[in-house]
Design a binder for these strands. Structure first.
Lengths: 205, 205
DNA sequence: TGTACATCAGTGAACGCGCGTTCACTGATGTAC
DNA sequence: TGTACATCAGTGAACGCGCGTTCACTGATGTAC
């Protein structure tokens, strides 16, 4: 962390990290260019050497998030290969694990109001994450008879929806909204029922 | 709409409605006390005759939303009785219909950062909405053999998660994030697979 | 019906604040010779 | 190695803005007699 001297060293990334910390602790609304600059030990004006403005900084945080997200899911998937089922389930668990471990990134990606199509770089990163889950769904769906197989994109959309819903409704919020179930259990059991519905798990287990 | 004269007539509700319009068009972040007052044809200071402040106004909008939400789901449920299955599916459709028809309310309820436990009134309204879905889930789960029946609260949590996820990921956003599927189809098919997984729909249909 | 009065919903001016952004600048760093 | 110079990352002051909130006030409305 070369900070001595007039120049910062790696201000761009320091700003992204400060932004992530702020987004995590204050929500996307509470995040402020000025505050991020202050946390990075720099004047607000310095931010404009590295980003076009506030939104651009959030977008970069989101982009890095999508890349990590994709890597994490890919890694989980690979680890449980060659079982398409186990690998798929691991991918689902990785979804929630990412949201828990990197809430700042998650919020920047999904709750900041930044469109995933804001820049080509951001769109690419988002598509890469989506691609991991879709490939996992695609592999898994080969185990369903072709005539009763839903499209893999629909299938993965269902899983993303349930995962995102669990994160938003049950894994966020400190107090109060408590459900009696741990988010992990909720998601795991929900995906289990769903996969049983697709005939991928034996009906009685 | 009695507006003539010095007094407004029904400023409290006019402010809630202005807030809903603003939240819908600008997001929870874009919503402003000052702007809501202006839209209601009134000085910002007048708001404080009816609400404690900005958050309190949003909370009231959310409260009204939860009540409407509960009514809408209850109505859908009643309409398809006595078939527990049809009634449950109708309730799921009502979820999405509400989110689509009343985006301002939906955002105030789920995306504004207002805790559902902020006031007893708000908590009651939220609990009432949750209760409708849980009763529907409970009725339906009676059709599952007791030994392989998941708790109705978990069951309804799964459905809420998937519904909320579909709303957030596929039913919001004007451009870009387009999935190839209509949110209604996505949710209906997702719930269908899920219910099949519970053994509530014949495995081959 | 008419008058006196209490209530209280809304006014308007003011506040302090932190925001995002701009600008001309400065001085540390890296490079060419 | 030493000097001259170009680059460019960060400064600091300033901007205009709209925010949420407060306050003493005013005047329309409703009520008692």
């Amino acid at each position: 962390m070369p900070k001595r001297g007039y120049h910062h060293g790696n201000l761009r990334q320091a700003l992204v990290e400060a932004a992530l910390r702020l987004i995590e602790s204050k929500g996307p609304t509470g995040f402020t260019l000025t505050e991020a600059a202050k946390q990075a030990g720099v004047t607000p004006a310095a931010v404009y050497r590295h980003f076009e403005g506030r939104e651009d900084l959030i977008a970069e945080a989101a982009r890095q998030g999508f890349l990590m997200f994709a890597d994490l899911m890919q890694h989980a998937y690979d680890k449980y290969q060659p079982s398409a089922l186990a690998a798929f389930e691991a991918t689902g668990r990785a979804y929630l694990a990412f949201a828990r471990k990197h809430p700042g990134h998650y919020i920047a990606m999904f709750e900041s109001g930044i469109s995933a199509n804001r820049t080509p770089e951001l769109a690419d990163a988002a598509a890469r994450a989506r691609g991991v889950l879709e490939r996992a769904a695609n592999e898994l769906s080969k185990h369903i008879p072709a005539d009763k197989r839903p499209p893999a994109t629909m299938f993965s959309a269902h899983i993303m929806a349930m995962s995102h819903g669990v994160v938003e409704l049950y894994a966020r919020n400190a107090p109060g909204t408590s459900s009696p179930y741990a988010p992990e259990d909720l998601l795991e059991s929900g995906i289990g029922v769903y996969l049983r519905g697709l005939g991928l798990i034996a009906p009685d287990s």
